[in-house]
Design a protein around this nucleic acid. Structure first.
Lengths: 110, 110
DNA sequence: CAAATCAATAAGTGATGACTTATGCTTTGA
DNA sequence: TCAAAGCATAAGTCATCACTTATTGATTTG
């Protein structure tokens, strides 16, 4: 269970480690796009794009929608949740003044 | 300037992509440790540890303190700030959690 | 039906990265 | 002062990864 979470984390970190893949994710965050649309404006080949999409999909960062011979992809920002959780683990080590601010903000939200 | 930030982002993502390096960071988040202390409980060689530390240091994720022949390292959680900023770009898809963190980040930037 | 389009997969290649052992440099302590 | 400890760097090796071209499968269109 903890292991499974760690594995997802690992896939996310690995997926986002590549600059080209981050660029793909960022473009797909702006809106759904077909693979060929995504390819325009990129210097890499179509198979390279497909390969990047497969990695992002495996990490849960993008979702696919098929329509005829087209494949539309969009970013799934909720896929970033495990990454956020990972970062939040270290909030406890952040300076105390930030912790205090956090509490204040949390209070304000309610 | 935006470019510089992007480069730091890239280094952080790359640094955290490796599971061993994440483990090192996590251990150093628990408290300062010398390189040899860090090495105990790890399967890799001492040079490997030093190399990982150099990468983490380059990404701004750990800081070094030298004392005699010892080198003590500790995690710098503020080094994660650019990573949070990156995630924060997708906040429109994350109604509430990120909004709080955004304020925290703003404070950390000072 | 045939040709073209869209996308994934196959297979191979070069670059990058994580490791190793060997070595050097600095500091400590007997 | 000399040996050992602590750590970094050098250099080389092997695995992984991002890319390429070639091909295939599936769908649309002429």
């Amino acid at each position: 269970m903890t292991y499974a979470l760690t594995m997802i984390e690992a896939e996310i970190f690995r997926a986002l480690a590549d600059p080209t893949r981050r660029a793909v994710f960022e473009r797909l965050a702006a809106g759904e796009m077909s693979v060929s649309e995504l390819r325009t404006g990129m210097t890499v080949s179509q198979p390279a794009v497909s390969q990047h999409l497969a990695v992002l999909r495996g990490a849960g960062l993008v979702v696919e929608r098929r329509a005829g011979r087209n494949a539309f992809y969009r970013a799934d920002p909720q896929g970033l949740a495990p990454l956020l959780s990972w970062i939040e683990r270290y909030r406890t080590f952040w300076p105390e003044r930030i912790e205090r601010l956090k509490a204040v903000l949390k209070d304000m939200d309610q």
